[in-house]
Design a binder for these strands. Structure first.
Lengths: 85, 85
DNA sequence: AGACATTTGTACGTATGTATT
DNA sequence: AAATACATACGTACAAATGTC
């Protein structure tokens, strides 16, 4: 891969920022930054870490939820899905 | 049902506006306001007709696309799906 | 009980980009 | 060139549920 955990969002790139973030988060999960059933950083933290709007963060998360990579617990956090579901 | 085509969005109701709009559009389609493979009003028109934000309209549409009720043709419009798909 | 911070859910308005007509 | 229409992103605000003190 070419999207490491330290990559930044490039607003000039052809790929939409929310897709870039989704790719970055996926890479970080595969890399083991966050374990299954463990929360990833909060939306607000991702906003600050990547310098993008919360709506963009939420969109990236929604994409990964669709893909079965993450699951959200309201008022609690966003978690990494276990391999077996 | 109780959500007819002339219903308005009630911001005070427990059901989120985007869900209210989805229900309204579904009712209007069932009622025959728009035929299969015909475009529903544009996002901007729905914004004006129902007095809600465009993001809310888009959310309602996304919900109905998920449910197979509508399909979107980029740069063209949003259409009613035929029963057989 | 109460106060407070955290986190997600929802909605608003606005701006820009891209493609079609 | 202009209007139309969807795609994406920004910022802001408040609600609701949760957890802590």
């Amino acid at each position: 891969m070419d999207l490491g955990p330290d990559d930044e969002i490039d607003h000039g790139a052809p790929l939409a920022p929310y897709k870039q973030l989704a790719a970055i988060l996926t890479a970080r999960i595969k890399r083991g930054d966050w374990q299954p059933d463990r929360a990833i950083p909060s939306e607000q933290q991702l906003v600050q870490q990547y310098g993008i709007a919360r709506a963009t963060v939420r969109r990236a998360i929604a994409l990964l939820v669709e893909q079965g990579v993450l699951y959200v617990v309201p008022q609690r956090g966003t978690y990494v899905r276990r391999a077996d579901g």
